[in-house]
Design a protein around this nucleic acid. Structure first.
Lengths: 209, 209
DNA sequence: GTCTATACGATGATAGAC
DNA sequence: GTCTATCATCGTATAGAC
């Protein structure tokens, strides 16, 4: 569906401000000023500030999920599939940095029904990674690990890039993706020695520090 | 220095509200209500809402740094030192969950000078982990990796626990710490095969997906 | 579609009595 | 130390003219 020019402008100004100042700290006046119109005019395009936030989050989640799914369709090998998923996730987050940063920090701006909608999308997305890890374990490629915890860990660490990445910085998107990808895969492919430390701890025999 | 009872109450109510609703969404009235006093009385104890936030962030960072440093003092072996650092970080974040969550999400509530003060503390803290990783590489225990990127990755993934951890949940603090610890150490100790993938990618010969 | 004008509530913070 | 009362400002959102 086609979007009017001004509606797109408002959206992009909002993304920029939500990213830089945060959703609550950004006022409708700020967005209007950035868009070159009066604040009342914003309401012709969006019914509320929250709807503006929600539309950003929703389409970001949609695009992310589509992008990763599409790339996964081209590969069969489990390890390579996880690598592709990680690489896709990182690429998406670093090239659409601001939207993704918002999607990961401004969920609190949503009312219950909208909040639930985004969380459902996020859960489905996480499921992709959980399935991949489980598959890898079943195939004996990855060590036996806690699938949920590790899927959160993996996604969080890749997502974090969106908060500090600078396009003109030392490393390119693909270099960062490769660093993450290798760290993650070798973290999952652990050897017996390490596993035994895990189960020792997990079964209660903890020593600390 | 001793803190009056009401000052401590206000602080703890604020931590709870900042964690649940966010700094901007929490009003002085909310905090006053939770503390059982009138909102004007808050200003007898804290000069501003921001000072309240800052004092929470500052002491959290202080305590975290002290805690990790103290635990590190008891160990010499590099790999074991990294393990101790990770374990300490996770323990601290999961037992003082709300403060840490705030410390990682509400920096935007600070004015420039306060912001800079906290960032300086955070940089110093990250330095501990960067030194450990560098040491491990120098000693040949860890593979050659990008120290900065991986220190961010490691800290972020451990910190993330503070956003979903539930004390009454399936896993204990120590179990989660052990999972992270093993994942991280085996991620750092990668083998040659993986390293070559990295340098292939890092040197520009990227294939995608 | 965009404007001006405005309703209306909430906010952080202060003054001064007790 | 805590209270009541109040200020000044800013927020989202609406009404209605053009």
């Amino acid at each position: 569906m086609p979007v009017t020019k001004m509606k797109a402008t408002i959206r992009s100004v909002a993304i920029d401000l939500f990213y830089r100042k945060g959703y609550f700290a950004t006022s409708i006046s700020d967005i209007a000023r950035g868009s070159g119109i009066q604040k009342a005019s914003i309401y012709y395009h969006y019914v509320s500030k929250e709807e503006l936030l929600f539309s950003i989050l929703e389409s970001t989640m949609d695009d992310l999920t589509d992008y990763v799914r599409e790339n996964l369709n081209r590969v069969r090998d489990v390890e390579e599939r996880l690598r592709v998923a990680v690489r896709s996730h990182v690429r998406f987050h670093l090239t659409r940095q601001r939207e993704n940063f918002i999607a990961n920090s401004e969920l609190r701006g949503l009312s219950e029904p909208n909040y639930r909608a985004i969380v459902r999308m996020r859960d489905a997305y996480e499921g992709i990674f959980q399935d991949l890890i489980r598959q890898g374990i079943d195939d004996g490629v990855f060590a036996v690990v806690d699938v949920k915890i590790l899927s959160y860990a993996i996604l969080t660490l890749c997502t974090a890039g969106a908060s500090w990445f600078k396009p003109e910085g030392r490393l390119s998107v693909d270099e960062i993706a490769a660093i993450y990808e290798n760290f993650i895969v070798s973290g999952l492919k652990r050897e017996d020695e390490t596993i035994s430390t895990l189960s020792r701890a997990a079964s209660g025999g903890i020593f600390f520090p």
